[in-house]
Write a protein that binds this DNA or RNA. Sequence first.
DNA 1: CAAGGGACCTAA
DNA 2: TCAGTTAGGTCCCTTG
Length: 712
Amino acid sequence: MQQSKIAYACQYADDELQLLELLLEKVRYYDPDLLVGYELHNSSWGYVIERCMIKYEINLIEEFSRIKRNDTAAMRSDSWGYRKAAIFRIVGRHLLNVWRIMRSEIDLTSYRFENIAFHLLHTRIPHYSYQTLTNWYTSGGPTLKEKVCRYFLDRVQKNLELLDVSNMISRTTESARTFGIDFYSVMTRGSQFKVESMMLRIAKPENFVLISPSRKQVGEMSAAECLPLVMEPISQFYTSPVLVLDFQSLYPSVMIAYNYCYSTCLGKVDTTKRDFVKKDDLKYGMDMLDIPSDILQLMEKHINVSPTGLMFVKPSIRKSLLAKMLSEILDTRVMVKRTMSEHENDKGLHRLLDARQLGLKFLANVTYGYTSATFSGRMPAVEIADSIVQTGRETLERAIEVINKTEKWKAHVVYGDTDSVFVHLPGRTRDQAFDIGNDIADTITRMNPVPVKLKFEKVYHPCVLVTKKRYVGYKYEDRDWKEPQFEAKGIETVRRDGIPATQKMMEKSLRILFETKDISQVKSYLQDQWMSILSSRVSEQDFILAQEVRLGEYKEGYESVGARVAMESMKLDPRAEPQYGDRIPYVIVARGPNEKLRDRPMTPLAYMSDRYVSKHVVFLLVKYFLNLVWKSSSLRLDSEYYIRKQIIPALERIFNLCGVDVASWYSQMPRRKQALAYSVSQLAEYSNNSRTIEQYYSSRHCIVCRKISDQG
DNA sequence: CAAGGGACCTAA
DNA sequence: TCAGTTAGGTCCCTTG
């Protein structure tokens, strides 16, 4: 669409009431299925609805509805909607809460509209406070008034673009088709609902009925006893290739291969006597399972016994419901993926098929979860879940043993988690590694029943295994790869509870380590960076922390720092209440020596406006003179905190494995130099006005329009 | 100062 | 009324 060329048909309203009537008229005229807003409670539709209710006592929820009802309460308190969707519903139309959709789509440190737009649409858009917009609209000239309109128009348009690029609508409709449920349920209901819907379709033709235990019965079920295998990694810096192999869809494969299902279970076997154990051990899901011995005798040749001692009939007697469903899902997925590769050029079709295969993948993955959902489950069966986990565990353990024991590979398993193995090949080249990797994958796959398959995923060369679930390396997926890809799991570079500075410094120093294997280069890089931080030659944006906040879920006195920041802001403006699950940014400022951390956060905006008082250089000069007097009261980021508590510990966890002490690198930095660096920065800040003004310019210029902005 | 609990976030 | 799971690492704060 050519946005700039769109001619908007304008209609004018004399007053607010008329404007609202126009809005209502539009909704009725176009009769949309979806009403979209970036944030539905405090702004957009929610705001209009609330405003209309309070000022004119018109219930817009009812007016927007496709069906007239008499009993609609205006805004019910609805904690489920508050957490999952919208706190109000409009009959006949779906409300899309864009930020909440995006929150579940992509991992970002902030879900402000501008940030989402930047990451998905790759454009920078400005943000103006309501105060500024109001000023422009009420006391500005026609140009400013137009600017306000265009500002909002642009945002409305961008909301739709966000839905478009994320492919959200078509993915949701495709999932609805795949699962056999309606559009809104795909977005708001959990995975159990989806599994059930799919399962019922297959159960019906076989005349199966799903049992529905009560909450109480579910609560009385036994607890799970089996755990997946998580190896303690051999933590070190590996300069030789490390192979990564994992079992593809391990749990679904196990369910298919061994016919594990509600419909095929024959109860527990006494492993010593191959006979029934006592009755109180026959607990099976919510019920007891007691198959008469004579029937069992008949079946003897057709039974698989799981590692936990549960008996299941073989597929030759009855193919399990779950296996049918899962093999259908996996086969269809393979088919869809093949069709996808045949239609690379048809972008629309390609996207649609991709959406379909993602839906199938999702379903395959959550089916195991359904059997083990003991907290909120509607039909869990711990015994089956345990069988799956234990079989998976033993499959992995067998693989590890074979890999370690096969002489020709001279391989050593150094880590494994649930369904993956990391194999160290000391002294081998990357090329050799690819040969061995393929050989291992084939060998292990042949050892296991169809469709269990060990897939050779990638080679890390080099890499660092830090702890369980935390590792990082240069990845090669194919022997032809000329350049590796930096890949990290679990460490600070992929976490959102630290600061961007840590992420950047860690990635950079790891890259230096991987490329040069020279610790001294890492050292000088880090000392450089620390010096920059101490002398404030860094962007303050890299020091913003952010946390997800769920007000109303905290124990008294245990509010997280983010929650405290949010609560402070709410004291000034009740409408600043964060949405449930929104991420709250803050910075840590230097205060007195014994101030607790949780008493030192500030919102970035408050921090910035304290530092940069006004938008005119003249005022800045005034501020400069004031600073001569009040210098000590000026805020500054707590560099010591950031370096000692955020940056160094993260680096230490990795580089201590290489035998160095990162903390000492920092304390080794000449103190005098440190002090000097600091005082130079103070000097620059307070007594060299050209530098201060330059600073002001660099951070105050609006990135979009190049004009000085009045926002932080 | 160590231990333990709460809160966050991630891997699988 | 609406709800997949467990394992694991880390930080901060309180308590003994």
